[in-house]
Amino acid sequence: MPTAIATDSARLPSPQGWPLLRLGFRPFYLGAAAYGMLAIPLWIAVLLGQVSLNLTLSPVLWHAHEMLFGFAVAVIVGFLLTAGKAWTGLETPRGAVLAALAGLWLAARLAAVFAPYGVYALLDLLLLPLVAGIFIALLLRAGGGRNLPLGFILVLLTLANAVFHGAVSGLIDVDPVRALHAGLAMIVMIECVIAVRVIPAFTQSALPGMRLKVPPVLEQATLGTTAIALALWVLAPAHVFGAVALGAAALLHVLRLLRWKPLRTRSRPILWVLHLAYAWLPIGLALLALSQLGVVGVSSGIHALAVGATGGLILGMITRTARGHTGRPLQASRLETAAYLLVACAAVARVLLPLLAPQHLVIWLVAAATAWGFAFALYLMVFSPWLVTARLDGKDG
């Protein structure tokens, strides 16, 4: 036995380079969490007139764009550059190349405040096509056609970002808000594709004996209907057809979630956070359906998808995957559980409470921003030391 263990250890590649730059999740999760912690409280301070930023575009557009193409995209890039290695067995960017990609992301965030708009737009437009090219080339080399739709969505996300900057610059006669809606729609589709692969798998691996199976026809109907509904929301004027499509997509997501048996995960925070966050997808789609009929404002549906679904799924994924890829137990600590609850409270304060008591909107906004900021502060407290140091098990990555 000692000889076999020594032989197996000798076969493992020795870790090389600074740990922070060994795998994509490390710098991008760290940057996204820090940006999420700072950007939302800063936005509320700007909105309430407490802080003034030297922005070259309107504060509302800056806030919406940066939470999509700054915060959320950083997590998507970190996840795909990490998962791509696991899916294909091929190396993904590390070392100097990974540092350049992370540096480009950071430079764009800083340029939004400290540089002319043209510089900001140029820096911001470079990252996504580079990552899309790297990811698609990786899949093609490995014959990983199953994951190519994610590469296609990255291309569409790149196009939405280009349309946004073109519209703001006056080069394209399009409302930049519509481009932001398209960006949110692409991010939601990425969540829909990844969720069906990871949430049931994580649930089954953590709960022995559980077998989760969703009929393929339900999966195809859910993804197809969601794509059509979001396309109608982005590209067509508000209409009853759009409301029906969004409502149908919401119902299908409820059926999909029920197949995953979310109540069975209530004793495992690292699992229930993903199920709870996913539940905001049908809520957001249903609110968008109601907004098509003029029942509620579109902001409610947008923030249900952005804060509840995207924020919750991001926090759940960057804890679970970071634990796994740093060689730590897949068991959330009390601080991580507190962070999960804080993001859930932020979603309730930003989406549901304004619908119930709109006269207290400022209070709800401040409460949501505070809960969100503390959630990602807790993540940084726990994970920052882990993301900049080597894996516990001595493996590379």
Rank of each mutant, 00 (worst) to 15 (best):
A185E: 07
V51D: 08
P215H: 11
G373H: 01
T92E: 01
A201P: 01
A248M: 06
A10Y: 12
P93Y: 06
A132Y: 01
M67H: 10
L258H: 10
G316E: 08
V366Y: 07
L157C: 04
G49H: 03
P216N: 08
L125W: 00
L251M: 10
Q331W: 09
E66Y: 00
T389R: 15
V382R: 15
C345H: 07
R350A: 12
H275G: 05
I134A: 05
L98G: 04
R26C: 03
E336M: 08
G311A: 02
G324F: 14
P41E: 05
L122M: 10
P59T: 03
L355G: 14
L130E: 02
G70K: 01
L288V: 09
V77Q: 03
L223D: 03
L255P: 15
A33H: 06
V119Q: 08
F69E: 02
V254Q: 10
F241V: 08
V254E: 11
L61F: 11
G397A: 13
V119C: 08
G308R: 00
L293D: 08
L218W: 10
L110A: 15
A368I: 03
T226R: 06
T319W: 05
I153F: 07
R323S: 15
L246P: 00
A32T: 11
A99K: 09
L392A: 15
V240N: 02
P329F: 02
G397R: 12
L218G: 09
I270G: 02
P15I: 06
H360C: 11
Y278K: 01
M210C: 06
I187E: 09
V51W: 15
A195W: 03
W87Y: 11
Y278R: 01
P354S: 05
S14N: 07
L104D: 11
F135M: 04
V75Q: 08
V97E: 13
H63A: 02
S333P: 04
L274G: 04
G301P: 00
I40V: 15
W105C: 13
L180Y: 13
P41H: 08
P116C: 11
P237C: 06
Q50M: 14
V60T: 06
A377I: 03
A115R: 12
R141C: 12
V234E: 02
T310P: 00
L361N: 12
V214A: 14
F135T: 00
L184R: 04
V196H: 07
Q359K: 10
G143R: 10
R320C: 12
N161W: 01
A238G: 07
I283P: 00
A206S: 14
R323H: 14
G297C: 03
A10R: 11
I314Y: 05
H63M: 01
L207Q: 12
A201H: 11
A306M: 09
G84K: 05
P59C: 08
A339K: 06
V155F: 13
D175H: 12
A6S: 14
L138H: 12
I314K: 02
L342E: 10
L380C: 13
L305I: 03
R109Y: 14
A121M: 01
T7I: 01
L47A: 14
A236H: 12
L23R: 03
L180D: 13
Y278E: 15
V131R: 00
I136H: 04
A6M: 04
A74V: 02
L159S: 09
Q50W: 15
L180T: 12
A33C: 13
G17H: 04
L276H: 06
M210V: 14
